[in-house]
């Protein structure tokens, strides 16, 4: 009888020890999993942060490059436009800034047609210091009665702080039946 009791208590105690061990093991596994999950999360955050930093750096470099190549403050863009163009077939535009030739653009038939349909062509972009500058634009083409036509237009403009846009506009002067060449600054 005593032996039986001893045996039962032994079995019960062994069972208790086993269950305690397995509980401890489970807890340890759960802890390890949580720790590794935490580790992964922090690693993922690190990667995300690094990605963001790379993107920021890329954006900054792009802006810096653009500012260095065409600083907004010294940028001047020149555009050619054609209004109606009944009295003038555009052949080429030659631009001189402060006496130095900067652009000589030949227009193909297709390009001239695009201008006649309302297109605006950026013929040149420059970086200029602040102060006064002289622009001379020479337009060649065929005028009324398909005669060779060559006309110049001059503008002295003040380059202040900030970008500047200048339009070289070819319009028709119906009264005189002649083309007109106007250079104007965009406000």
């Amino acid at each position: 009888m005593v032996t039986n009791r001893l045996l039962i208590s032994l079995i019960v105690s062994m069972l208790l020890v086993f269950s305690a061990t397995s509980i401890a093991q489970e807890t340890a596994v759960a802890d390890a999993e949580a720790a590794s999950r935490e580790k992964f999360r922090s690693l993922d955050e690190d990667v995300q942060n690094l990605k963001k930093e790379v993107l920021d750096l890329n954006r900054d470099l792009f802006l810096l490059e653009e500012e260095l190549l065409f600083p907004a403050n010294s940028q001047v863009a020149f555009f050619v436009s054609l209004d109606v163009g009944e009295y003038f077939d555009l052949d080429s535009v030659n631009l001189k800034i402060d006496g130095k030739e900067v652009a000589n653009y030949l227009y193909t038939e297709r390009e001239a047609e695009a201008l006649a349909r309302g297109g605006v062509h950026r013929v040149h972009m420059a970086n200029l210091k602040t102060g006064d500058h002289e622009l001379i634009a020479i337009f060649t083409g065929a005028g009324p009665n398909i005669r060779d036509y060559r006309r110049g237009a001059t503008l002295t403009f003040d380059k202040g702080i900030g970008a500047k846009y200048i339009e070289l506009e070819i319009t028709d002067r119906v009264k005189k039946q002649q083309p007109e060449f106007v250079i104007k600054e965009w406000e």
């Binding site: 052949d91 080429s92 653009y105 030949l106 227009y107 193909t108 038939e109 390009e111």
Partner: peptide
Amino acid sequence: FALKSASGENLR
């Protein structure tokens, strides 16, 4: 490039 052609047009 764009150049003046013998026919008088500019070709690009």
